[in-house]
Design a protein around this nucleic acid. Structure first.
Lengths: 206, 206
DNA sequence: TCGTGTGAAGACGTTCACAGCT
DNA sequence: AGCTGTGAACGTCTTCACACGA
């Protein structure tokens, strides 16, 4: 997170704003106030203004923000001008579901290859993305410019996988395994731990 | 989050500590210091001590924490003394993958039923959990005590689904749809937005 | 008048540093 | 000596409140 830059939490919210703006845009709305957009995004309006101000000043006092312009700025800030290639490791249950999931494509990411210890089994699950044997990872990454990886391997293999990815030049990792990963500080890891999310709920429902 | 209680972030970390302790326990380790456990969990040691102190005082100065005892306390605090039933809405790609996912069972959650507009299609995906037509949701919840739900329906149906769940007495919702959900404040929602996670990475890899 | 942009205040979270127990 | 438990310092994030531009 060295970048001279916008905090992580703000980036998540910018994604949300972008999605809300898409809806507004589809409905032909051209201008939106911080109050309205904040309501749609479920945040406080002055937080929204501060968040947007990270990217510069785009609003008109007394009027609000121009919807299309703001979306453009958001896409730009989020580094989403162009399609971003991604690879996926571990095409088991969760992995192969993610490969069939349309949400990534819709947001500008393309899973260009998947790797598994048993690609044949994964192929049976109806995966259409090119599937390789795990050993071919390094060769693939040497020949293809990819910076993002999604990890769906079992926890005990996750750290080993991460080490290989880092050595091959991967810069960002989305980790679905319930493992604490160690990486050089210039590598970014986002972890999604499904069981922890339920545990968390479990606590708060009294 | 009205509870006189432990902050959300702390709860997430407690889950992590619990998993780390499990490994230690399997290796026959009986006592662990905050420093060692913190390293395993990837956090600062005084943060770990503070986190654990939320549940009372369990350490021995000069020695550390008793592994088994601490695990017990954690399970207790996380509300995981017993198996927690969960229902799942939307058995599409992601939903049916989650139904086959073993991680929940392993952590003490049992998906007792799934609901979909087209249960036959979901059944074809090899789901073994009882699958019902979406309309049967209310009946099911009237007859079965369930407090947690996982939502995997498309974004445009999510809010409607949530409203029905809340009316039927669901208290915690794990939401996988990229939608901003409105709920009464006593209901807890945790959202996992897969595309946002990638967008986030996309920004930080410069 | 309406709504942005932003300093200042406030809430929250993390780390430090050390007293005190074993 | 080793390690916990915790006040105090520090840092970050959120909300308030208002000056100022349209």
């Amino acid at each position: 997170m060295e970048k001279g830059a916008i905090p992580k939490k703000v980036i998540y919210r910018l994604s949300t704003y972008h999605r809300c703006l898409q809806r507004l845009s589809e409905n032909g709305i051209e201008t939106v106030s911080s109050g309205n957009l904040a309501k749609a995004a479920g945040v406080n309006s002055s937080q929204l203004r501060k968040d947007i101000a990270y990217m510069g000043q785009w609003g008109t006092r007394g009027l609000g923000y121009p919807v299309e312009m703001l979306m453009l700025k958001l896409r730009d800030a989020l580094g989403r001008e162009k399609l971003q290639p991604v690879i996926l490791l571990g095409a088991g249950n969760l992995g192969s579901a993610l490969l069939r999931y349309q949400g990534f494509q819709k947001e500008g990411f393309e899973v260009v290859a998947a790797f598994d210890a048993d690609p044949a089994a994964a192929r049976k699950r109806g995966v259409s993305v090119p599937l390789f044997l795990e050993e071919e990872l390094e060769t693939f990454l040497a020949e293809n410019q990819v910076r993002l990886a999604i990890i769906c391997v079992p926890a005990e293999f996750a750290q080993g996988m991460v080490n290989r990815l880092v050595r091959s030049g991967i810069q960002g990792i989305l980790n679905f395994s319930p493992a604490v990963l160690e990486v050089p500080k210039e590598i970014v890891v986002n972890s999604v731990d499904l069981a922890s999310e339920l545990e968390n709920l479990s606590y708060f429902i009294r």
